[in-house]
């Protein structure tokens, strides 16, 4: 059952690749941003999976507990989540702006309009 210890990482890779696939194949810009977010969240799960210690508890120090999970990845991912939502907001603002200029959010139509211009 040694492979079960790697199950978390494999699901994370599957989620990552699902997001990656959405980014490269879907023409709709909103769908692309959802794919990017999927990728991002899977990286968060990867980091938090690594921080877990068997038999540990949340890293809030108390005399009752001796083993804690690693707090460092938690700090990194807290920062990453907030930065992630900032980039999502900027990306979505760009989508709204593109829609106003081109009248569409489909990539192939935007390319077509660019060529005919």
């Amino acid at each position: 059952m040694a492979w079960l210890g790697l199950y978390n990482y494999w699901v994370v890779i599957f989620l990552m690749m699902a997001g990656f696939y959405a980014v490269i194949t879907r023409g709709n810009l909103v769908k692309k941003i959802v794919g990017l977010n999927l990728f991002q969240t899977s990286v968060f799960i990867l980091y938090i999976s690594m921080s877990k210690v068997q038999g540990g508890t949340a890293p809030i120090v108390d005399n009752e507990f001796a083993i804690y999970s690693n707090p460092l990845p938690h700090v990194l991912i807290l920062t990453a989540i907030v930065v992630g939502v900032a980039t999502t907001a900027l990306g979505l603002a760009l989508v709204v702006r593109i829609r106003e200029s081109y009248g569409t959010v489909e990539e192939d139509e935007i390319h077509h309009l660019d060529k005919s211009f």
């Binding site: 968060f44 921080s51 939502v85």
Partner: peptide, 14 residues
Amino acid sequence: LDAVDVAFTEAAVG
């Protein structure tokens, strides 16, 4: 996975 701070940030922000 014991990351309580990350959990409530993800629930609120994500």
